Simulated scan of single mutants.
Amino acid sequence: MPENSKRFEFTDAVVWITGASSGIGAALAREMGRRGARLVLSARRESQLQAVRGQCVDAGVEDAAILVLPLDVERHELMPAAVTQVLERFGRIDLLVNNAGLSQRSLCIDTDLAVYKKLIDVDLLGQIALTKAVLPTMVAQGSGTLAVTSSVAGKVGAPLRTGYCAVKHGVMGFFDALRVEIAHLGLNVTTIVPGSIRTAVAHNALAGDGTAFNRPDEAIEEGMDVDDCARVIADGFAGGVEEIAVGEGPEMQLLDMKRQDPTATFRLLETMAADLIQRKPPPMP
């Protein structure tokens, strides 16, 4: 395989981003559009996708180079038709960024089983189902990159996130295994491992009863700027990086620490958990 075969060229490439209505997905749309990509923007909320389309146009992307394609990743039966729409518009798919997802903020003992099922359906099965729908197109092309936004929580067990860690570890395992299965076909897999990025992820996270957490998360509030995050990720694709770690602050050190000294990592995170539990706010009335 040529040394530079995993580098991604954005100019005129068709890039499909899920979870594109806000946060990292919206920032990736703006950044990749500025780099010359043709964009497919998917999420459940069409009005917000249209707003992101406007931001991309303001950033210099031609309106004709953007397809707004509302999609609920839990509706697996709709995915083949969505793929057909993309192909009818652009004729190919060069990069799929599986970025849709939910987070969680609750102790295991306080978390309904339905919350775990929701996280699995959205953050794991949704990514697998759309990847499987797109994969035959890329095989026929003989080229393409399949990507997923995981998390530091996909590498390290973090408190208040048993469900989120489970699904993010799951997507890392699926896409790492997929990478080795499809490399001989000329296809690439990229996993994205963000730390704390300043988005609304904590406010939109699920509480133990399945309602929105709707509270600030100090680490997220002090995290990396989302547009800076998008530039790092886009640079990673351009450079052929297969696992893109992106973030600032001590949590990023956990990625190396977990490999080098798992026991010390467990003790550190236990201390963090005890502190969080002690400061846990009372239940909402």
Rank of each mutant, 00 (worst) to 15 (best):
Val171His: 09
Met172Val: 15
Met172Ser: 10
Gly173Thr: 03
Gly173Lys: 09
Phe175Leu: 01
Phe175Arg: 06
Phe175Pro: 07
Asp176Gln: 10
Asp176Val: 04
Leu178Met: 07
Arg179Gly: 07
Arg179His: 02
Arg179Gln: 14
Val180Ser: 09
Ile182Trp: 10
Ile182Glu: 03
His184Cys: 03
Leu187Gln: 10
Val189Glu: 02
Thr191Cys: 10
Gly195Pro: 09
Gly195Val: 00
Gly195Phe: 06
Ser196Phe: 12
Ser196Met: 10
Ile197Arg: 00
Ile197Ala: 07
Arg198Tyr: 00
Ala200His: 12
Ala202Phe: 05
Ala202Leu: 08
His203Tyr: 11
His203Trp: 09
His203Ser: 14
Asn204Ser: 15
Asn204Trp: 12
Asn204Ile: 11
Leu206Val: 11
Leu206Tyr: 15
Ala207Pro: 06
Gly208Phe: 09
Gly208Trp: 06
Asp209Asn: 15
Asp209His: 11
Asp209Arg: 06
Thr211Lys: 04
Ala212Arg: 05
Arg215Glu: 10
Pro216Ala: 02
Asp217Arg: 04
Asp217Ala: 12
Glu218Asn: 10
Ile220Leu: 00
Ile220Val: 15
Glu221Ser: 03
Glu221Val: 07
Glu221Gly: 08
Glu221Thr: 14
Glu222Thr: 08
Glu222Ala: 15
Gly223Lys: 11
Met224Leu: 14
Asp225Pro: 11
Asp225His: 13
Asp227His: 07
Asp227Glu: 07
Asp228Ala: 11
Asp228Arg: 12
Asp228His: 04
Ala230Ser: 12
Ala230Phe: 02
Ala230His: 07
Arg231Cys: 08
Val232Ser: 11
Ile233Gln: 00
Ile233Phe: 06
Gly236Thr: 07
Ala238Pro: 04
Gly240His: 01
Gly240Met: 04
Gly240Asp: 07
Val241Asn: 02
Val241Leu: 05
Glu242His: 04
Glu242Asp: 09
Ile244Gln: 03
Ala245Ser: 02
Gly247Asp: 01
Gly249Lys: 01
Pro250Tyr: 00
Glu251His: 00
Met252Pro: 01
Gln253Ser: 13
Leu254Met: 06
Leu254Asp: 02
Met257Gly: 04
Met257Arg: 05
Lys258Glu: 05
Arg259Cys: 07
Arg259Asn: 04
Arg259Gln: 13
Arg259Lys: 12
Gln260Glu: 13
Asp261Cys: 08
Pro262Leu: 04
Ala264Asn: 01
Ala264Thr: 09
Thr265His: 11
Thr265Asp: 02
Phe266His: 01
Phe266Asp: 09
Leu269Val: 08
Glu270Ala: 08
Glu270Met: 05
Thr271Glu: 04
Thr271Ser: 02
Thr271Lys: 08
Thr271Val: 03
Ala273Thr: 00
Ala273Asn: 06
